[in-house]
Design a binder for these strands. Structure first.
Lengths: 219, 219
DNA sequence: TAGGTGATCTAACACCGTTAAGTTTATGCC
DNA sequence: GGCATAAACTTAACGGTGTTAGATCACCTA
């Protein structure tokens, strides 16, 4: 009875082929710049076939977003998971990794984080993608918590502090992605480094100073 | 010879009517959600007529972006221009005004700052819009400069510092706009305040402390 | 080999941005 | 007033879009 299995395998293979084509095209031409017909042409099937594997175009996008989250997740896990560094350095590296991911995969980042969901609620994020996104954020939250616990960062509301840091990361990433070439930015890495350093200092972290040295600072 | 003038006036009126309809619809339904045919239906003209007043759909968008920049410009001018406050407070208020503008007109902000220009370079910003945008940024830059000059902020590269602050402002604004409802953010104003305060502190500004008190801090 | 089943395709629907060509409308001139 | 002219506006079309109902084809089961 291996026939069904082979059929399933083949079906899965075509599904993957569609996904691969769609990913490449979305990344190159943007969501609106890609049509179902063009995807179909690329994989040499009729457009209708795609609809037997994916609900609609947004479903296709949703799967790709999910892949992006998975990739980001893996990178963050590797960096935030390595706690051989002090909490500040760990946090800094994780933040840098986030921005680097965004700028290395600008189209993926755009589709995942900068694509507006208008109207009622046709969010392209299904439950699974949402969970993956939360997992990514949790890496950041845990790193902030460790830094707080070690006294390397001002103790305040963990959630607010983490979200504020994320906002900064997203800001520098998305600005560079959406306005690249349209605004005279300073050298990219300099802007990123400055932004990260500014935020870390603002959160209460002084680089290369003993923790106690600044203990008496205002809130 | 008042006939030509009346004609021009009437033509200008229709142009404005198109612009008003387009603005309202873009803001409500997003750029891709609005068609030239729907705009035409709303103003009770044929779709072709619009093309006698605007080059194409992106031209329509470009005009609306320009309007947004003008509005933002006016608000920033009012706040950054009022130098009765200390430079730190002035900067803080200006930054808060930026975020407030973004969240009060989220669709305008989206169209202006978060709309990706894919492919070669079909940027919807013409020269005029670009100048207005630069003028907005210059308000921030000047405020940062005053804070540096007064010693209320660490002296470092002005351009980098200003762009890093902008990145943060854009980050918290765009995150709240694009993921509103899709992520469990803490209370909005708290997140904004925390982000601004974090950045200002990170830039070297200590609230309610004399300037000299922190002069020996590491860069 | 006949029948059934699932995968795939054809053709269509109702949209889209845009434009060439035609029509209407208002003007200026005799 | 009558008419040429120019501007304003519309019709109709082109080639594209996402999506779907129904026909067709290939293969497996009996």
């Amino acid at each position: 009875m291996g026939i069904h299995e082979r059929r399933n395998r083949e079906k899965q293979l075509l599904r993957q082929e569609i996904l691969d084509a769609a990913r490449e095209m979305f990344v190159r031409d943007g969501y609106e710049g890609v049509s179902m017909r063009k995807i179909a042409e690329k994989i040499e099937y009729s457009p209708t076939t795609i609809y037997h594997y994916f609900r609609d175009k947004t479903d296709l996008l949703s799967q790709i977003i999910q892949e992006s989250f998975t990739k980001l997740n893996n990178q963050l896990e590797a960096v935030f998971g390595d706690q051989s560094q002090c909490p500040r350095e760990c946090l800094r590296r994780g933040m840098a990794t986030y921005v680097d991911f965004a700028l290395t995969h600008p189209s993926h980042y755009y589709l995942t984080f900068m694509f507006r969901q208008v109207e009622d609620c046709p969010s392209p994020l299904d439950d699974e993608a949402y969970c993956l996104g939360m997992k990514c954020f949790d890496y950041l939250r845990q790193a902030v918590k460790r830094a707080m616990d070690s006294g390397e960062i001002d103790r305040c509301d963990l959630e607010t502090a983490s979200q504020a840091l994320w906002a900064g990361l997203h800001g520098v990433s998305s600005l560079l992605i959406s306005l690249e070439g349209g605004f005279p930015f300073v050298e990219r890495q300099q802007l990123i480094n400055h932004t990260l350093e500014m935020m870390l200092r603002g959160a209460g972290m002084q680089p290369k100073l003993a923790a106690g040295q600044e203990a008496s600072r205002a809130r």
